[in-house]
């Protein structure tokens, strides 16, 4: 559990970080909270000759709420997300989900940027961001671009982000209606056996719109358009929830691990998805 040696860089602005990335290319990587990257380095599964610590880049920190637009700096920690009452008022699903990530120690260090940029299917924030239809802002040598969370993920640890780009912030519209982040895990500090984010807007007795996304049930987070469609216009009754669950299960492809075989995960996913939908509806 000892990493190979590396050079440590500590820029104070994004330009400085980009410069180191440009200079060393593949040999350099940014470090946020380190709670995904450092374990990989210690296991010698990641070789990072140049480590660029972003903690002094003030521009990457903070939560901004302007009207119904929420912008969160990449270096904002999970703990800061949980602690922000303004964020909780604007998007309560964030606190609900963040509290289910790891444990307090990890959450003091781990950042939202690291969580979504990492590309680990076990991370909880990517599915949540897809549910919220968030946009990721990336800055590189050629300038800035914005990518939708729903099209950012390509495969496990493979994202649309270029090696020489930095994720600077995440933005999304404050969700309306009911919400839920439901997660089954074996213990504190565990990634999901199955997890689901759900947002439901209500109009009278009917679902006006819905959004459903899932964590750790494929090699990437899964936004299920079909599940949302099954709920839209329904009374969110048993039949509609069943249809939504069936649609969502069509979209996932879990693999066997120590949490259990595929058959089990598919069953639990169905339960978790239906509970997320029902809880979101109860709050809608």
């Amino acid at each position: 559990m000892i990493p190979p040696s590396f050079e440590y860089h500590r820029p104070t602005d994004v330009a400085g970080a980009l410069a180191v990335l440009a200079e060393h290319g593949d040999d350099a990587r940014v470090l946020a909270g380190g709670h995904s990257l450092i374990p990989m380095m210690k296991l010698r599964m990641a070789d990072v000759p140049h480590l660029i610590d972003l903690q002094d880049v003030a521009a990457l920190k903070g939560i901004e709420i302007a009207g119904d637009q929420i912008t969160i700096g990449a270096m904002t920690t999970q703990h800061e997300l949980i602690a922000s009452d303004a964020l909780h008022a604007a998007a309560p699903i964030i606190r609900e989900a963040a509290l289910q990530i790891a444990d307090p120690q990890v959450r003091y260090m781990g950042t939202i940027g690291g969580n979504v940029a990492n590309g680990d299917p076990g991370n909880d924030m990517p599915g949540l961001m897809q549910c919220l239809d968030a946009r990721f802002t990336l800055e590189g040598a050629d300038g800035t671009r914005t990518v939708a969370a729903r099209s950012f993920y390509e495969a496990a640890y493979m994202t649309d982000r270029d090696d020489e780009e930095i994720l600077t912030h995440i933005s999304f519209a404050a969700p309306r209606g009911g919400y839920a982040y439901e997660k089954q895990k074996r213990k504190i500090g565990d990634y999901a056996t199955a997890a689901c984010a759900a947002l439901i807007e209500r109009e009278g007795d009917k679902v006006a719109s819905a959004s459903v996304a899932m964590t750790n049930l494929s090699d990437i987070p899964v936004f299920s358009e079909a599940a949302a469609a099954a709920l839209a216009g329904s009374a969110c009754d048993d039949a509609a929830v069943k249809a939504a669950v069936a649609a969502a299960l069509e979209d996932i492809d879990p693999t066997e691990d120590n949490r259990g075989p595929v058959e089990f995960k598919m069953h639990v996913a169905g339960i978790i998805i239906s509970r997320a939908i029902q809880r979101a509806w109860s709050r809608a």
């Binding site: 444990d103 074996r186 213990k187 504190i188 500090g189 565990d190 990634y191 120590n258």
Partner: peptide, 16 residues
């Protein structure tokens, strides 16, 4: 060995 780290080897905390 499939359970060589504390992610998979269950060591309960105050929570469990």
């Amino acid at each position: 060995v499939k359970t060589g780290t504390l992610m998979d080897f269950f060591l309960p905390t105050a929570w469990e």
